[in-house]
């Protein structure tokens, strides 16, 4: 099932995103209110960032269960640590930093052991990775499926920090400077991690990318 394939869902997401965009201007004000103890402001912040956090966590961890854990824990940590945020304008970086660090920690924990994941059909909304390119040709659909499987497999083999850097820069579209701030490392490290991660993926997906 494609992401938001039903029209009702598409309209709902569009409206929610529009609301989120409108709220983005007010983020700094909401953060200030929350820092003064307004709980309603916190709920509105959760509403504004829930999809972003879930999406980031999913892309790093590649499964719903862990992404859900990271999303919940991120908001709980924001609630507990909002006092540490000096300038409300940097709230988005603050959220990204908490989510990324927790996702990396979780990834490291999971690396050593096999986790029994429930079947996809048991998950809410039949979770499944998809490509956004609309294709009708059956052969193309098969190619897309192969590409997706290969991407997932190749991404799973990347070390946590390289994977997080790739997601933040190449998928979330953050600059290298922003990624460095979130990951707490120099820009040169981001550049190097990105270069290595891309090269690994290029090697793994070699033939599929040449097409």
């Amino acid at each position: 099932m494609l992401f938001g394939c039903t029209k009702r869902n598409q309209v709902r997401h569009y409206l929610e995103d529009k609301e989120t965009a409108r709220m983005t201007d007010d983020i700094a004000r909401l953060v200030s209110l929350f820092q003064q103890g307004d709980r309603q402001a916190f709920t509105r912040l959760v509403k504004a960032f829930r999809r972003k956090v879930y999406s980031l966590a999913y892309r790093i961890l590649l499964n719903h269960i862990d992404a859900d854990e990271v999303t919940q824990e991120t908001f709980v940590r924001i609630y507990n640590r909002i006092g540490q945020l000096k300038s409300p304008e940097h709230f988005e970086s603050f959220v990204y930093r908490i989510a990324t660090n927790y996702a990396i920690d979780l990834l490291r924990k999971r690396k050593g052991r096999v986790v029994a994941m429930p079947k996809e059909s048991e998950l809410p909304g039949s979770v499944q990775l998809t490509l956004s390119i609309k294709v009708t040709d059956p052969e193309k659909i098969l190619e897309n499926k192969q590409l997706l499987a290969a991407i997932t497999q190749a991404a799973e083999e990347l070390p946590p920090r390289q994977r997080a850097t790739l997601v933040l820069h190449d998928i979330e579209g953050l600059s290298k400077e922003e990624v460095a701030g979130i990951m707490g490392c120099p820009e040169a490290t981001v550049r190097s991690n990105l270069h290595i991660a891309r090269n690994k993926l290029k090697k793994k997906l070699g033939k599929l990318l040449s097409q």
Binding site: L2, N9, R12, T43, F75, L129, D170, I171
Partner: peptide
Amino acid sequence: QVLREVNVPDPGGEYFDNLI
């Protein structure tokens, strides 16, 4: 390009409401 086009699956309509 391919990385940007990989969609995050929708966890279901009620998931985000329950999350709050």
